[in-house]
Amino acid sequence: MANIFAFAETRLGELRRAGLEAVTAARRVADQTGGQVHAMLAGGPGIGALAPKLAAHGADVVLVLEGDAYANYNPEVLAATVAARLASGYRAAFFAASAQGHDQVARTAAKCKLPYASDVTEFVFAGDSVTVKHPGYTNKIVQTFVLKAPVAIISLRAGAVLPVENAKAGTVETIAPAIDPATARVKVTSTEAGNRGKLDLGEAPVIIAGGRGLKEAANFALVENLAAAFGNAAVGATRAVTDEGWRPHSDQIGQTGRLVSPDLYVACGISGAIQHLAGMRTSKCIVAINKDKEAPIFKVADYGIVGDVMEVLPALTEAVKAAKAGA
């Protein structure tokens, strides 16, 4: 039985939800095909302490690459090490379709001389063939592909597979890098996480996004407060906002920003330009707050409130706090 590989992404020593999603996906396939799940962790000294979380989500074996050279993302060593691992024979390898994942998986696929299914929302393994779905055309079209490869290399869109606990042995195996880290040509000199400890756009079940209707950077406090009231929310923004420098570019949602699909998306003072919709229209539930009742955002919003964000956001924040306290 061929085994299934999963790469569990971490950042600055913390496991990302996308990592557990990859392990859960691998478990699902292994249960169907009968192989084992080998989940890999890489990071600075101590990263191996996360192994039990991978075991809890279905890893039979946890491969740990640990050391100072991996405290920041080390693209060349990781790609070489994962590629060497895959060469030993796996049916499939799951990664996160995250910023790191997109970089890492393409490198790995090229080293393995294998095609790569990127940003997948659904997958079906049947005999020799793997069929996947992957949104394209700014998420306006669903593309179905057949992946013809001995090892199916797949990156998963955030939320495509939700983490499920399914405890396995999780035997820890320390692995060595396939190339000497000193020979790496590309060096990540620092990782700056503005929102360390908070959820990020790729993982949060709730996103509160602000647009030009917030009027100035300081008013994003209203958006932050609502996010804090939810407790499981991240803050996003439109390009109008990132262009103004009110929020960093990494917060931008849309055609040229991040593509997200949380359970709940709250659009505050956002007109709903087509390029913005491209990044969030697949959200499960959309709420819009805008003072203009003709704003296009209301066409995609499940629930709309016509009103001033300065007034509605504080009221909504209090109501959400009360609802959370009562729950």
Binding site: A99, D200, L201
Partner: peptide, 12 residues
Amino acid sequence: RELEGAFELVET
């Protein structure tokens, strides 16, 4: 390099 809610400084 832009990450989700974070960034990296990278050299080559």
